[in-house]
Design a protein around this nucleic acid. Structure first.
Lengths: 216, 216
DNA sequence: ATCAAGTTTGACCATCCAGTCAAGAACCAT
DNA sequence: ATGGTTCTTGACTGGATGGTCAAACTTGAT
């Protein structure tokens, strides 16, 4: 009298906390990487499981052995992304030198565009669609962090340690300028030549820009 | 013996150059407006004809009476968009005062983000997906325009009429900073409060930023 | 009023796509 | 080697979606 299903061995997805075998770990990573590639360029609805499966070199049913659904893959990617998305801004240190700190923040964000352009595009896709899946994150985690750091920037500004600038727009400008190099890389490549690194020259330019903007 | 089809009266779409009746003109406009709304937030594949039909208050077959296909609607929107997308940069006048001209360009782009945020998001969606449908436009029209204006900026820079800046990154920075307010409006709204106008304070900030950047 | 052209739609079709399932293949502890 | 577990997949299903069509309705010139 066999049980209708193996009771303990559910889908490895959500219930089993950590991937057990080496195969699990490896394949889940392969799938997430393939899915990041596909979701970041086609958006959630524009991506198909077949595309992701092909990209991963696995069969579609095999994807669904490792993840409960297309949505679960996407959610997993977003969760991992958001975990680290705030870090650069979090590191803005109230005790450091204002200009140095802001410059370092800009540089960290630029590095993220260089090292994780697909993650940036995944995020951009989500925001473009009205951020339905990460609304809570933005309204709470991101908002409170931004409010806190804007206050810090405002204090620095008041104290004359940086020029008088609107702190929110200062933060938005860093987001816009750095993420642009990841999100619009296709356009930049077509304009400057595809062999050209889109980020070439970006850092000196942004350093010049923010030095001039922030110096009191 | 009626002809199997009315021979001259094809689909009003491509063949008939201009919409004839008042109804044609009105409904095509309604459809394009609805489609812009839906495509700009969901992307091409994420949008459905049913969504567009509902938004337009028309039936799905009726959409397809006015346009040959989903793709035709999208193509029409993009074509109309690209027609005007270059205008702000085109207006950058070699005979004007450099700082005034660049500032005016920035302001025109910011106005476009204010007045046509959906068009900006439609464009952003297209670029995020690797610009498959507008690659030719970018590689030829946009690229040659940017090259030309970059040369102009470079000349101004060499002549000491503006600070020494990388002309390409200067242009990209204007794109990034202005389009961000349209493309990431959802995020800005969630951070600053949805009742708050996302663009509030943007113009003074950008004026300050570019004044400081460009003054020699 | 009449009728031909233009407009609208319910019903339908073919394809695509997320997700299922049962059977088979690979793995691994003994 | 053996047997239970984990992994893999071909074949399938149900629903969504782009697009068709013929029949009906509306419009406007006469």
């Amino acid at each position: 009298m066999p049980a209708p299903k193996n009771p303990a061995a559910e889908k490895p997805g959500t219930p089993a906390r950590g991937p057990r075998s080496r195969i699990q770990k490896r394949n889940r990573q392969i799938i997430l990487d393939a899915a990041l590639e596909v979701f970041s360029t086609h958006g959630f609805r524009g991506a198909t499981l077949d595309q992701i499966a092909a990209q991963a070199g696995l069969s579609k049913p095999n994807l669904l052995y490792y993840f409960d659904s297309k949505d679960a893959i996407h959610r997993d990617l977003l969760t991992r992304l958001l975990d680290t998305w705030l870090d650069p801004l979090r590191m803005l240190d109230a005790d450091g030198d204002p200009q140095t700190e802001i410059m370092a923040y800009m540089r960290r964000k630029l590095e993220m565009s260089r090292d994780f352009p697909r993650e940036s595009r995944l995020f951009a896709n989500e925001i473009l669609q009205g951020a339905p899946r990460i609304e809570e994150f933005i309204r709470h985690d991101l908002r409170s962090l931004v409010d806190e750091k804007a206050q810090l920037l405002s204090d620095w500004s008041q104290a004359g340690r940086i020029a008088r600038v609107d702190p929110y727009h200062l933060i938005f400008s860093i987001w816009a300028l750095t993420q642009h190099y990841a999100d619009f890389a296709a356009q930049i490549g077509m304009i400057r030549g595809d062999s050209h690194d889109p980020l070439d020259g970006a850092e000196p330019f942004l350093e010049q820009l923010y030095t001039r903007l922030l110096t009191p």
